[in-house]
Amino acid sequence: MGFLNSPKWIDVENWPISWEIGGTSWFPFLESIHVIAAAFVVGSILMVDLRLLGFAAVKYPISTLSKELVPWSWGAFVIATITGLGMFITRAASHVVNPAFQWKIVLLALAGVNMAYFHFRVYKNISQWDNDLPTPTQLKVIGSLSLFLWSGVMLAGRWVGHII
């Protein structure tokens, strides 16, 4: 637990930029952008996940939806990460030991693994099931995991503020 209890996290909280964000309207401003960006990450990935499950947008090939929507999810994710880091540094030492924050990071990592698995392992065979209905079980599992993990990220993220 040395890493999480390191005094370095206190140093992060004392960076001039941390004080600037934490002591001004920058914090709520960053948080509103964070919530909007996070909602957009989930909203844009939702159509792809539901398509993988065979529930929505079934007229479109999976590859088309993925190509047109996932870049938007990534763009919003970058905004959410930057704004999230901006908030994190104002209370770094408390956040790293906050169980909700720890859950959030774990769930984010798992969502990333799920996405990477889809993209690097499954996607190369896309021509075999691009228009299939019902979709193969493997895709249903990936789509459900994505929905479940991203909802978990949102829940843990919201819970961070109730513990801190």
């Binding site: 919530v35 957009f40 909203g43 844009s44 949102m154 829940l155 819970w159």
Partner: peptide
């Protein structure tokens, strides 16, 4: 927090529908 998350997830659906 659970109800707030439901609220935010519903906002995500607003993003994925009308905003998109």
């Amino acid at each position: 927090p659970i109800i707030q998350t439901a609220h935010i997830l519903a906002i995500a659906v607003v993003m994925g529908s009308v905003v998109l």
